[in-house]
Structure formats: C-alpha cells, structure tokens
Design a protein around this nucleic acid. Structure first.
Lengths: 316, 316
DNA sequence: CTGTTAGCGCCTTCAA
DNA sequence: TTGAAGGCGCTAACAG
C-alpha cells in the first residue's frame, strides 16, 4: 500500500498549486473548467481521498452528528433512526450511533465522547429519568426525541392523540366496552400519558374505564389480560404493540375472537398473526426525519427552540 | 459559550509550555507529578476538551471504526451490533454505523466516506451480491460478517450447523417426517447453504426431503406451508424465525398443532406466541463480539487473515 | 483564474 | 523534566 496521498501530491501530479486542488475539492466556481478537469482526472486515477480529519480541523466542522438511541433493538427507534439517517446523509453529514440502554450515566458518557469528537450536533432519544442538563448546555446543537424539555428543541409523539385515535376508531366500529393495558406510570410517556389519555377519553365518551399497567413485555400483558376482560368487553387498547401481542395471544387462548385489540407501533407482525387487531403508528419514521431536519436547520444558524409533535395515524 | 480552548490556553493558565500539556494528555511518564497535577487541575476547571480531529490528524488514528449494517431493523444484526459496540467501546473506539440496505452501491459509497473519515477499521455485514473489492483493498483494517472471502478476515455463521442442529433436535424427539421452508437460493447463505444443509441431512438420515423456498417474509412462508405439509408431516424446519412465524401461523389455522416448527434467530416472540416451536441462535451477539475483537487485534498489528465460524446453539 | 502564505490544534523531536 | 520549533493535510485570505 502506497503512502497516503495529499493535495500536494495531486497538485504536483496535475502541475498546479495545492490551493487549486483544494478549490476543486470544495467546488469553488473560480477554477478554469479545463484545469478542474485535469485535476479531477488525476484525483480519479490516483484514488486520492481527502482527509476528513484535516478538513474537520481546518473548518471546525466534522460534518458528523451523534445519535444516542436507547436500545438498538427497539423497532420504534429503528424506524426513527432510518428517518434520521436519510435526512442527515442527504445533508452531507454522517452519524455516530450510540446506545444509552436507558442509563443516564451512559448517556452522559456518550455525550462527553461526542463532544470530544467535535460533532456538529446531537440527537437524543429521551427516556424517563434521563438527565438533560448536559444536553441543554449544547443549546442549539441538539434535538431530543420523545420527551419534552423547555430549553431545547424536541420532537415528541402525540401520546394523547395515539390513544384517542385508537379509541375513536373502536367507537366508530360500535365498540363501547373498551379496556386498556399499559405500562407502569413511572414511565412518563408510554406509561402515564397514554394511561391518562385512556381515562380522559373514557370520561368524555362516557365509557366505564377498566385498565391495568405492568411491564413492557408480552408476558406482562398476557397476564394482565384476565384482569380487564369481562364478558361484555369488546376491545382492549394497548399502550404498545408488544403488549398487544401478549393480549391477543391470551384472547386467542380464551377463544375471545370477538374482542378487538389495538397496539401502538405499526408492527406488521401483529396484524399478520392476529387478524382482529390494528396498530397506531406514532409516526416514528417521520419523527426521525423531522428531528434531523430540525437539527440541521439549527446548525445552519436558526436559533429558535422548536417543539414539534408528531401526528399519529392508523397503520397502513 | 466561550471560544474553544486549546492546549495553548491551558498552558498559559497553568504557567507551562504547551508541550507539557500535551504530555499530560498523552500520559507521558516524564512529567513531574506536581506539574501534572497542576495541569490536570486547570483542565478540570476550564472544562477543556482536546480536539479529536486534531489528534486524529496528527496521530493518524481517529479511534473510530465504521460499521456497515445491511438493515437497521434486522433483529439479528442488531444483536451482532450490540456485541460489536460492547467490544469496541471497551477498547476506546467509537462506531459510526451506516445502513447498506443490501445495496452494493450504497455500501461502496459508505466505504468511501469511511475512508475519507480516516476510520481505523471497518466491520461489514455481508450480503449476497455485495461487492467486496473495495473492502479487500482495506486489507487488515476490515472484517466481514456472514460471508466468506478468502482475502479478508471474516466471522461467519455456521449455516450448516444451524440446520443440522434443528434437524438433530427434531430427530431426537422422534420426528421423521421433516419438511423445510427457506428463501431463494440466490441468497447464498440463508438461502442456498441452509437449503443444502437440509437436503444433505435428509440424505444421511434417510429422510424424504420436502421443501420450498421463497421470499424472506411471513407471507411467503405462510403461503408455502401447504406445499410441504402432508398428513404425515411431523415438523417443519425454517431458515429463519420470520419464516417460522408464517408457517406456525398457517399451521395454527389448519389445526395442525401436532407439527413442530423450528426457526433461526432466537426471537423470543416466536415461542411466546406459538408453543410448539423452537429457535436456533446462530450466535449473533457472540459473532459481533468476535468480529470486533478480530478487528482490534488486526489494528494492533496482527496481520493474519482469520476466518471464524460462530457456533450455533438452541435458543434459551 | 491561480500560486503563495498562514495558520487550525495537536504531538514529537531537539535542545536546554 | 521542560520549552521551542516544526509539521500533519487542508482551507482561506492575499497577492499576482
């Protein structure tokens, strides 16, 4: 392997000065088309690759954004990350993805690493108990997803709308006896907000509430099903597809194919396996795109703190 | 926000020369302990963070490895990535993750970006039709997962062992009529190799083979089920959990709870929803760890080309 | 239009 | 044990 080439080598090879090479690299319009072609020719042939580290150091921007996801294997976050990547690649940035595993400590570690790396910005998937103080100090170089904080831009899911959408849909189908299974309210968004949304909807729609909360797992929902299932129950709304999976499984065992189940997450597997089922899509992909666009806008100089709420829709 | 500090600022603040600060940063032993403490003190107080870009440019190593995954939402690759991250973080590296979406073109784009970024190494999740020529030129700075190539280190899954394990397990349970559903053999590993493993196992075990291949989707497997299901069928081995899900679903509809189904991937959902089911774990997490360890060893100077095969096991 | 000249922030000889 | 000086690869004035 030959030594790494630099613009100086290219300059010599092309018989020009190194700044001309630099100009070609940066698409500076004031280069004679002819010269440019010659330089590009040489670059091609020699397989020269400009050093990002040097560019980053010179220009101050590494064209990198950090993405701190809570769990790599979360389908919802995956969808959002896809949206993020699409946007930031298009804008010429790269992403370094890190996993917080819902640990505030790990998150802060990651943040400090990202800071060392001179990343241009950060997108953080928030979680209950996550410490936003460091992120806030990043000011206009960060966007938080899924939790709201006054000081820093965010993209949130419409936790109320999600549940309302499910409830309204069921009501339209003539269902009146609708139960709910969620997760522990110590989780502010998926837990508390969705539960409250259910309770409030029941009040305003004159539905007798019947609900249980537990862990975010199939098993937990499976076990809780019997506690909210009455002979007259017509539907069960779940705070997530994972829960819906457990509920639907239990209903199947009990031969209660009359009970409709709704989840949140747009997992195609759910309705494939259990027909009398539907899912609400909180708009993960769109939220990812939105957060990335927001960040890029801020990096470009827009210093407003914006709070977006992603609109939910019925999956498919 | 104050201007970014440099070692020079720290040097002045601490009343030393900038090289001394640099020495402190690099843990150079020849610094009077007293001086070091003073410098570290100042660094703490001022919140100085050395610029990785500058370090990278100077030293040549950015302490970054690129990871090119085929799909972010692939549960199997997620597990492997977790393994990779665990290892490389521990070794002081960071990861920039990119998604190839099974496109050779995108992969090459990503590779060129990574090269520009001066990453220390690359881990690539291979796929059929993926163009390894560029990766090969990276020589000892790359590891490929899931496909084998002579020239470059790799960690592969034991596609034969995976199927053999499933078959043997079924035989032990007294099953003799075992069918197979896989994916199109144009996919070399999940498709061709696993199919061949099935056929060969049948030969040596004197089992009448009965198989179909299609797409890697629940629907495809669902539809193919009837083609391999005979009254005497006792089990169906599937090339992946996704397929197994489709097959189990169809069997449930047909009331064939007598037929056992096996998948590949260790998805907990599979056996949760369908009891008469089990899954083979190709060792994704371990493979991820192995590939990262391999890469780091190579970056540290070991220039052997190593090919590892991850051992499969029955999930749980 | 193009070449020359400074640095960017850091690490590393080379002297002291 | 420490400071001064040089240079990594690149970009951005500043002159031609």
């Amino acid at each position: 392997m030959t030594r790494k080439l630099t613009i100086l080598d290219i300059a010599k090879l092309a018989g020009v000065g190194k700044s001309t090479v630099s100009r070609v690299l940066t698409n500076d319009p004031k280069v004679k088309i002819e010269t440019r072609e010659r330089v590009e020719q040489v670059i091609q042939e020699s397989g020269f690759v400009p050093s990002k580290s040097a560019q980053a150091m010179r220009g101050g921007s590494a064209k990198v954004v950090g993405v701190i996801i809570s769990r790599l294997d979360s389908p919802s976050e995956n969808k959002a990350v896809s949206g993020i990547l699409d946007v930031i690649y298009a804008a010429g940035y790269d992403a370094v993805i890190m996993e917080s595993q819902f640990s505030a400590e790990k998150t802060n570690e990651h943040l400090s690493v990202l800071q060392k790396r001179n990343v241009d910005g950060v997108i953080l998937f928030g979680f209950s108990g996550c410490d936003l103080s460091i992120v806030e100090s990043l000011n206009h170089k960060a966007v938080v997803i899924a939790v709201d904080t006054g000081q820093i831009s965010s993209v949130g899911y419409d936790n109320y709308g999600i549940i309302e959408l499910a409830m309204a849909n069921l009501q339209q189908q003539g269902k009146q006896h609708i139960s709910f299974i969620g997760v522990d309210p110590s989780d502010k968004t998926t837990g508390l907000m969705r539960l409250n949304a259910y309770i409030e909807y029941c009040e305003s729609a004159n539905i007798e509430p019947s609900y249980q909360t537990g862990q975010l797992s199939h098993e937990s929902a499976y076990e809780l099903t019997d506690h909210v299932l009455k002979p007259e129950t017509e539907a069960i709304v779940c705070a997530s597809d994972t829960l819906a999976m457990g509920v639907a499984k239990r209903l199947q065992e009990l031969d209660r194919s009359d009970v409709l189940v709704s989840g949140v997450g747009a997992t195609d597997l759910l309705s494939f396996i259990f027909p009398n089922t539907f899912s609400i899509d909180p708009g993960y992909y769109a939220a990812g795109k939105a957060s990335a666009s927001l960040l890029i806008k801020q990096l470009a100089g827009c210093h407003d703190v914006t709070h977006l709420t992603q609109k939910a829709m019925i999956a498919q």
